[in-house]
């Protein structure tokens, strides 16, 4: 049997070795961060300014956690950072979820933020409410916009507590510019931002933004170009920039070195794979 050349061996490498190298590589960078500088992008600045403008008008910020645990790593820190920013600037926040697991995602983010003694003054029901999830996906959003938030959520919040005891929920009768200043959808799939475009932004004119997982950013740009999304917070990188803008570097900032060096690692693999492929092809010829 003919002995395999170096490149042939390289091309036949067990994929588990690649997985192991990636794991070790990520672990080393995680444990020894190098602190690469993070530049603030235009998109993140626009998103930041949305909350700043609400602070001036005192209007409600409506957040929709349209994701599950799988996307928590990218989208969870976005909600936490937005809540911190809103609480710092006195912006009231209402949360809901188009995804079944989203209500819990929002609750986890809220609990994480409220554990910080800095936010001891925040009153649930007055400064923030988590409406949670109701079955119906897009239908729930449509009813909140055209009908009545209280009725749509059957008069209870995520934990089943009556909305009647929550002044913020009672004042916010509808998902409409008359009651809400801006809506943000944290999106990892469908239903997501486009539901708000169809059922809220277009019919009522309510301004909206999205926080979105990195791989879906190009698809969201189309909506921003058309003027339907005001801001886009793009993935963990956008979230890291936002954390820096609110002066509270957190989980997303921690991941930036890993993302950067992970990209370099993938690029090197692409180059190596192609060189190997060309070499084995040449040898075969």
């Amino acid at each position: 049997m003919e002995e395999q050349t170096f490149w042939q061996k390289m091309m036949a490498i067990d994929r588990r070795i690649i997985y192991a190298i990636l794991f070790v590589f990520v672990a080393i960078v995680m444990l020894n961060p190098i602190g690469l500088p993070i530049e603030i992008s235009r998109d993140t600045e626009i998103y930041y300014n949305v909350v700043e403008e609400l602070a001036e008008t005192g209007e409600v910020l409506w957040l929709d956690a349209a994701f599950g645990p799988g996307s928590w790593g990218e989208l969870g820190p976005m909600i936490e950072a937005t809540l911190r920013h809103a609480f710092d600037r006195g912006v009231p926040v209402i949360g809901m979820a188009m995804w079944e697991q989203g209500g819990r995602m929002f609750a986890t983010a809220l609990n994480n933020v409220l554990e910080d003694p800095q936010y001891d003054h925040i009153e649930y029901g007055e400064d923030v409410v988590n409406l949670g999830f109701r079955p119906g996906g897009a239908g729930v959003v449509l009813r909140s916009a055209t009908d009545d938030v209280y009725e749509t959520f059957r008069g209870v919040d995520h934990d089943g507590n009556p909305l009647d005891d929550m002044p913020l929920a009672m004042q916010t009768e509808r998902l409409h510019p008359d009651y809400v200043g801006h809506a943000v959808v944290y999106e990892s799939g469908s239903p997501g931002g486009p539901v708000y475009v169809d059922y809220v932004h277009e019919p009522t004119g309510l301004e909206m933004s999205v926080g979105i997982i990195a791989m879906s950013v190009p698809g969201a740009k189309v909506y921003q170009d058309a003027g339907q999304y005001v801001g886009i917070l793009p993935g963990a990188t956008g979230c890291a920039q936002y954390e820096l803008l609110i002066d509270h570097p957190g989980y997303a900032v921690m991941t930036q070195d890993v993302i950067s060096l992970g990209m370099v690692f993938v690029t090197l693999l692409i180059i190596l794979g192609n060189v190997g492929w060309l070499m084995t092809r040449q040898q075969a010829q």
Binding site: I13, R15, Y19, P69, G70, W72, G262, L269, I270, G273
Partner: peptide, 18 residues
Amino acid sequence: GSAMFALIAFYITSAAYR
């Protein structure tokens, strides 16, 4: 759920090479 999503990183890396 998070682990399933995180698998993408490994699969993209493997696909990048092969």
